[in-house]
Design a protein around this nucleic acid. Sequence first.
DNA 1: CGGTATTTTGAGTATCGTCAAGGCCAGTGG
DNA 2: CCACTGGCCTTGACGATACTCAAAATACCG
Lengths: 263, 263
Amino acid sequence: MAETLAEPATRTGDECFLSDMARIGDLPNSVKRDLQVICRRRLFSCGETVAEAGEPSEFVGIVREGILRMQKSLPDGREHVVGLLIEGDMFGLVFGGPLHFAIEAATDAEIYIFGRAAFEKIVMSSMELDRLLLLNLMNELDRARDWMVILSLPKIRARLSGFLIVMCARFQKIDHLITISRRAIRVRIPISRPDLAHLLGTRVESISRALHALADDGLIEILQPDLVEIRDLAALSEETGELDLGDPASLQRLVRALRTAQG
Amino acid sequence: MAETLAEPATRTGDECFLSDMARIGDLPNSVKRDLQVICRRRLFSCGETVAEAGEPSEFVGIVREGILRMQKSLPDGREHVVGLLIEGDMFGLVFGGPLHFAIEAATDAEIYIFGRAAFEKIVMSSMELDRLLLLNLMNELDRARDWMVILSLPKIRARLSGFLIVMCARFQKIDHLITISRRAIRVRIPISRPDLAHLLGTRVESISRALHALADDGLIEILQPDLVEIRDLAALSEETGELDLGDPASLQRLVRALRTAQG
DNA sequence: CGGTATTTTGAGTATCGTCAAGGCCAGTGG
DNA sequence: CCACTGGCCTTGACGATACTCAAAATACCG
């Protein structure tokens, strides 16, 4: 299935593309070469299914561009978003059983795909790649726990605030999602309202109301439906009850960057 | 700190205790021997802190008996439960940075502890142990996602139902938590109401009300505050919107066991 | 038996979910 | 070029649910 549109990723002038990906650049050259050989590039357009749930996951993927959403499909037809995958994220169980959720493109996306068997072979030959997988998993686990903390906040306002903060902390490196203007941080919300509602465990209407409530109180400004400017990061953080979401250090880095831009 | 009360685990007649632990028994004998040597046994009483958040996690642990809770501590003093660890579960980041949450004993617990440096050395020498760590992490990730799905259910009744079902599915092997009587399944809730409330993202009062609401509708019976009998597992499952939580197979096993006991 | 902690119940308020309607934007076809 | 359609976001009103505060009941422990 995945092979139909796949094309070899070893194009001229792009031989070291893997080095761009988060953390993969640190691998020994021999491993990178091996990965390069089995790597295929695929494009998905928004809404397309990348991997079905319940299948043994015939490939491992790395997101090159765009956003994927992981979702559990409920028997009644509704779907529940349990996480987002962004640039540099890996997915697909490497040695495990079937996937417990589906993966779909939340935006147009570009993905690097590795056949599972071949990938596992390389993993077994490289301690470094093995370690990378382990770290990647720990990272994902941390993120899942962050979502848990956010989801268990009682009010939608607080959950939405948590979401925005996580976006800031984690998606900093994605330049077209977070931009630091002279006066504030601008966050582009990369998923639709229904998806966001599912992710935060609520309905579209509540999301809308909470967002505008935050705007009315001056914590944020809604420039476009999917583009908000954070006016008061500290207050936003207070909304969540001051939890330290994601990597506190990366938030501080953001605050520093903001001060530099202002001063 | 952990060393003060620790004692060597290599007691007479107990040399292969590690084999009892989930999945560790499958490791090659040489690895088990290596682990055995650095393993220490520690007892924690209910409420004690096993590991602080923010520390680089000086050891790796495996729960032998009892329940630990993982929690994020909020600056305002409250604490947020993000997961439970039971018999056979491993914890402690192996190659990673600092722990992002604290671990406390939710009941009296017995734990096997491995010094981190020594443990990592063994991991690096054993592909099998390395793989075990990977699988363990994937398992935890799955569980975290299950919690996410439960937490994003809108009604407390549904979340509580989800919790009970997860208890049934995952804690089956722990004999003193789940017992199958002739007519129904009995679940012992191993954590206090405040902890349960935090875990499900609500307040103690709401937990109490939801629990009694389920009881009034005949889905469960409250034998003791922390001991409920499930009268109608199917209906309980419907409350959650029919999500397939945890391992559906293990629930089916439970249902079969129940039928056997009844027939 | 008394004292403390936990659990439950109650009443009032705030929030959220639901249903319904309206506005905005993009793509389609006349 | 414009009306039409469908999807998405927003707004409003109403009922259901959950949170807050307070107090009573129960279990737990010495």
